[in-house]
């Protein structure tokens, strides 16, 4: 039931291990926020005619808020399902989530086609 490293490591070594995991989480969140959620963009911010520096500052804040929202989501899932059984996780990933994303792709393409 335990992840191996939980029993193998203790004190600072476990600390580094978990630290690297959290860095991983942060980087993944940053990539997700940048690639799929617009990075430092906020909707309607360019229409407000704010000074550039202020916009840059708001952009940084927006990026970090997005990153932290993703990290919260990661942790939230972790609180809810601390240990997902691995075969179930594989089933979920391959048989449910990937078909769903392909479906999403198709529907998005269809909508774009119809709208244009």
């Amino acid at each position: 039931m335990l992840g191996g490293y939980h029993t193998e490591y203790s004190s600072m070594k476990l600390g580094f291990y978990l630290f690297s995991e959290y860095i991983n989480m942060f980087v993944a969140s940053a990539v997700m926020a940048t690639l799929y959620f617009g990075g430092y963009h906020l909707p309607f911010i360019s229409g407000l005619n704010l000074p550039h520096n202020l916009i840059a500052m708001i952009g940084v804040a927006a990026l970090f808020i997005k990153i932290f929202l993703f990290m919260f989501f990661f942790m939230w899932v972790r609180w809810t399902i601390p240990r997902f059984r691995y075969d179930q996780l594989m089933n979920l990933g391959w048989k449910i989530l990937i078909p769903l994303s392909i479906l999403n792709l198709l529907i998005t393409g269809l909508v774009i086609l119809l709208v244009k």
Partner: peptide, 16 residues
């Protein structure tokens, strides 16, 4: 039910 997703979302609502 086999999708688990509804159950997971329900669980996440509980934790929230």
């Amino acid at each position: 039910e086999r999708m688990y997703l509804p159950a997971i979302v329900g669980g996440m609502a509980i934790t929230l």
